[in-house]
């Protein structure tokens, strides 16, 4: 459950991007939690999130109503929503504090402002999941496994689109690692493209591996 982590962008863009997750802990406090969650849903909706999501029904942005989300609550209900302003996100935390439902709450957003808010509201943060960022890759670069295949042609003639598409075909079982290698390595006419290594790299895409 780290899908709200690793957001990328400048501080300017991230300063108003908060993701709120309210979660019942299965086997601990999920029984009888639907009523509290229902209240939280109403409270969050009133504050005005950019979106409320639900794995069961879909998101409000895609046209799902609040009632549909509510009726879609499972035995272990969850609320996932995003706020486009710090003020709204912190207002939601304040409201959750008042409702005191005992559900777990996480807020993903800029750490400095979040910690200051906690201090202001008298909340002692419990634990934290910190993104350590993506290492060694630059914004314009594709994934490491694509780079591994790309950089064997130092002239850059084996492009990312072809590699990504070919890897996908191997993943889908439409191409064998060997055929995938034969498909992409002719592009590097120098012959320094190590076909043996390429095949091994493609083998990592085979579904069973």
């Amino acid at each position: 459950m780290t899908h709200s982590l690793h957001r990328r962008g400048t501080d300017e863009y991230l300063k108003n991007d908060f993701t709120l997750l309210v979660t019942a802990a299965s086997g601990v406090n999920h029984i009888g939690s639907r009523e509290g969650m229902s209240k939280i849903l109403d409270a969050v909706w009133e504050i005005g999130p950019t979106n409320i999501g639900s794995n069961e029904t879909g998101t409000t942005l895609s046209g799902v109503t609040l009632e549909q989300i509510r009726s879609g609550f499972t035995k272990v209900p969850r609320i996932r929503c995003n706020f486009g302003s710090k003020g709204k996100a912190f207002a939601a935390i304040k409201k959750l504090q008042e409702l005191d439902t005992g559900m777990s709450v996480t807020l993903s957003g800029p750490i400095e402002a979040t910690l200051a808010m906690c201090k202001e509201y008298g909340i002692k943060p419990h634990s934290i999941n910190l993104s350590l960022d993506v290492w060694g890759k630059k914004d314009k670069l594709p994934a490491e496994e694509v780079l591994e295949l790309m950089t064997m042609c130092g002239h850059g003639l084996v492009g990312r689109t072809l590699i990504e598409e070919t890897m996908e075909k191997v993943r889908q079982g439409k191409l064998s690692p060997q055929k995938a290698t034969v498909k992409i390595s002719p592009l590097c006419i120098c012959g320094i493209y190590n076909t043996d290594r390429a095949e091994k790299l493609f083998e990592k895409c085979v579904p069973s591996k």
Binding site: P186, C190, I192, T195
Partner: peptide, 14 residues
């Protein structure tokens, strides 16, 4: 494993 040529514009996979 592979060898290529800019003159003939070919490598072993071709």
């Amino acid at each position: 494993t592979n060898i290529g040529s800019l003159t003939t514009q070919e490598n072993m996979t071709m």
